[in-house]
Write a protein that binds this DNA or RNA. Structure first.
Length: 409
RNA sequence: GGGGAGAUUCCCGAGUGGUCAAAGGGGGCAGACUGUAAAUCUGUUGGCUUACGCCUUCGAAGGUUCAAAUCCUUCUCUCCCCA
């Protein structure tokens, strides 16, 4: 098989391919152009979006050309694939702002050179489509009977599917056709939930242009206990440091299950495969160390090595392995205020370790709150300047949530 | 257009006038055990409160009643059947 595809396969990226042999042959003949599309429906990319981009880095490094497509047009419609409810309609301004943010985040991760790797936005050809022309030229190639048989719609046929969403597949297919015509794009990649849309695009190109194109999907990554990967209690694992701090991001990977370490190292880092196998084969202390490596590597890729180092130092300090306490997430505390004393419950809420005072109270009552490593015994405890240690007070909720209250003059 | 079913706390889902801040499960949080893992066990899970208690919540708005998630009226939305 083609080298580039072999790499993807060995790292667990390949879920389905329309014609793996044919694609392999094509890629052996020379660089191809491929694309991956993503609808900017939120303010930040999250780790679930990143699987295709990791694959793109591998493919780009193997010499292939990549179009990173922003679904500025399709986001106006909303993809019903795999969704149980209709997507919220978002404003055009919001979509454009999201797309700009997505590209900025990707710019750190991919090397956009404008020639072998560049972006496009499908609103350029979708926004001003003429409805009648579109139906005559494109719509006639789609069989409603066939569309209804797609797995992606099955669920929605139960709960309801509006016409706007039902059109989504036509638009994504049209994207592929446009990118084929404009850039000679021969391969579309994406998450496995995109399978139906990708296949539809390939068929459209075959009918309209008589050309053979390909599709390749990646597994929807789940954790070994069956949850969607990258979901935290607070929501998705975002790339935006303001939405998910590098420390929290690091901790997510630091705490993955043993069974997921190898898989995640393969997909979310660029460490050599042999090294990964070596790292992940251990048990107990070794597998635990491998998680630390995983966390550092992924954080470095997304937030840079400086942030990864800081997060690692903070984690070590928080969990008693030395490290640098300065890097632990912190809030600042006014010195005068501290001198007067602050109720323990208020302090925990302020530090973000509890959402409400009730929750903070519960935490204290259940013995989960500690100050400077000492368990808080009463919910009426007052924290004042005497708790001050090297200019900061260490607050901990449970074993893992920690915050440093830095005293400010 | 006609007929029927439904909307409950983060999710699923019980609850048909007071004992309901509302069973049970899931999820979350905390404790024990550990390796910052998993599994298991225990506690907890609307807000404010030291507490008595007070406030907000059962699709929306009104009404009946000493008292409503529960009864009545109107409205909104969802699903099913018939045309």
């Amino acid at each position: 098989m083609n080298r580039a595809l072999e790499v993807l396969q060995a790292r667990g990226f390949i879920q389905q391919c329309t014609d793996l042999e044919g694609l392999s042959t094509l890629m052996d003949q020379g660089p191809i152009t491929l694309y991956e599309g993503c609808d900017p429906t939120g303010p930040s990319l999250h780790i679930g979006h990143m699987v295709p981009y990791f694959a793109i880095r591998h493919l780009h490094e193997s010499g292939h050309n990549v179009i990173v497509l922003m679904g500025g047009g399709t986001a106006r419609i909303g993809d019903p694939s795999g969704k149980t409810t209709m997507r919220q309609i978002i404003s055009y301004e919001e979509i454009d702002a999201n797309a700009a943010r997505f590209l900025k985040q990707l710019d750190r991760f991919l090397t956009f050179d404008g020639k072998t790797l560049y972006s496009a936005n499908n609103k350029d050809w979708l926004a001003n489509l003429n409805y009648i022309d579109f139906l005559r030229d494109i719509g006639r190639h789609f069989s409603v009977n066939r569309m209804l048989s797609f797995e992606a719609y099955k669920m929605r046929l139960e709960t309801g599917l509006s016409f706007i969403e039902f059109n989504y597949q036509l638009l994504q297919s049209y994207d592929y056709l446009q990118l084929y015509k404009r850039h000679g794009c021969r391969l579309q990649i994406g998450g496995d939930d995109q399978w139906g849309n990708i296949v539809a695009g390939i068929e459209l190109i075959r009918r309209v242009e008589g050309a053979e194109c390909f599709g390749l999907t990646f597994p929807l990554v789940t954790t070994s206990d069956g949850k969607k990967m990258g979901k935290t209690e607070k929501g998705a694992l975002f790339l935006d440091p303001g939405m998910t701090s590098p420390y929290d991001f690091f901790q997510y990977w630091r705490n993955v299950q043993d069974a997921d370490v190898e898989r995640f190292l393969l997909m979310f880092t660029f460490l050599p495969i042999e090294e990964i196998k070596e790292l992940a084969k251990g048990k107990d202390a070794q597998i635990n160390a491998a998680k630390e490596r995983l966390a550092w590597e992924v954080t470095a890729l997304i937030h840079g090595t400086d942030e990864a180092d800081k997060a690692l130092q903070a984690a070590k300090a928080a969990f008693g392995g030395g490290g640098d306490a300065e890097q632990i997430p912190s809030i600042s505390l006014d010195e005068d205020r501290l001198a007067k004393g602050i109720g323990i419950l208020d302090l925990f809420v302020e530090a973000g370790l509890a959402d409400t005072k009730s929750e903070a109270r519960r935490l204290v009552q259940q013995g989960g709150a500690s100050v400077n490593g000492m368990k808080v015994v009463g919910e009426n405890a007052i924290i004042d300047a005497t708790y001050h240690k090297d200019g900061a007070i260490m607050l901990k909720a449970g074993k893992k949530r920690i915050c440093r209250a830095v005293v400010k003059k």
